[in-house]
Write a protein that binds this DNA or RNA. Structure first.
Length: 262
DNA sequence: AACCATGGCAACCGCGAGAGC
DNA sequence: CGCTCTCGCGGTTGCCATGGT
């Protein structure tokens, strides 16, 4: 699957494209470990990689960087993506800032493969107001919340932190342990909006998102309560959503959840 | 077993912003 | 001011695995 870009400077300067090999990954990791990130075009040449600087940067940021989390998104992360996308639209990098360890590319792929798919099947625009109401008010968000609650009972957040401490990504990749890197990962994670979820003293994101008293008979209304814990996260604070139409009776919701159980 | 359709995701591309000269 | 380079972003492509027929 490997190809080369056209070059007028001869074969020696042809650039590789396509899937990265383990050898290339190793070259990139070790070069950055010694010299740091940045100046990607120069980095590519000095590291002996026949890749564009752009390609090196992308590979590092989306896959090789130690604090990149791999694996399925948690319900909490899915919930936050839905919230933030309804607020900011396709501002993937901005959304990714609120999901430590997740890349804009991963979030973008998640949206396009999972969320867009539902919109296609429902024959409505994924960016349209009706679809956003379906996602946020009728089914998707409310169904994520019980999952988040059940995960909280077993302290999912703590489990993730334990997992991160036990098997640092950097160790998996390079075979060496950088304890400071691991600690910084955990510290960064704890300052994210998700850090509140398993904090019983400070309530949980799920409980903030979902108040039974505020849900009407169609389940189309929920309130995001205000709390000082969300001062740095204005969208979640006191934001109320009430659809201006009955999104359950119009059949959107049934179609949505017959396709995939979250 | 072979073929085909589909989904998931890594990687690429084009563009624009910003910095440096 | 204009040029070049670097970087980052969002959109798109294409490979590969999986499931269905």
């Amino acid at each position: 699957m490997l190809s080369y870009t056209n070059s007028s400077k001869g074969d020696a300067e042809q650039l590789r494209r396509g899937t990265w090999s383990a050898e290339e990954d190793s070259l990139l990791i070790h070069y950055i470990a010694r010299h740091g990130e940045g100046h990607w075009n120069l980095l590519a040449k000095r590291a002996g990689l026949r890749r564009t600087g752009k390609s090196c940067r992308l590979r590092w940021l989306n896959y090789l960087k130690p604090d990149v989390k791999h694996g399925n998104l948690t319900p909490q992360e899915e919930c936050l993506i839905l919230q933030l996308h309804s607020k900011w639209g396709n501002r993937w990098s901005k959304i990714a800032k609120y999901l430590p360890g997740r890349t804009d590319n991963e979030i973008k792929n998640y949206w396009r493969t999972r969320v867009h798919k539902h919109a296609r099947h429902l024959k409505i625009d994924a960016n349209s107001t009706p679809f956003q109401h379906v996602i946020r008010c009728c089914n998707w968000m409310p169904r994520l919340l019980p999952k988040m609650e059940s995960l909280n009972q077993t302290s999912q957040h703590d489990q993730e932190l334990m997992t991160m401490e036990q098997v640092p990504v950097q160790e998996q990749i390079s075979g060496s342990t950088d304890i400071m890197s691991t600690i910084s990962q955990v510290a960064e994670y704890q300052t994210s909006p998700f850090s509140i979820i398993s904090n019983n003293d400070d309530y949980t994101l799920a409980k903030y998102c979902y108040h039974d008293d505020n849900i009407d008979k169609n389940g189309c209304y929920y309130n995001l309560a205000s709390t000082s814990a969300f001062e740095d996260f204005p969208y979640l604070v006191g934001d109320c959503h009430k659809p201006d139409y009955n999104c359950v009776n119009d059949g959107f919701a049934d179609g949505l959840w017959s396709m995939r159980e979250l």
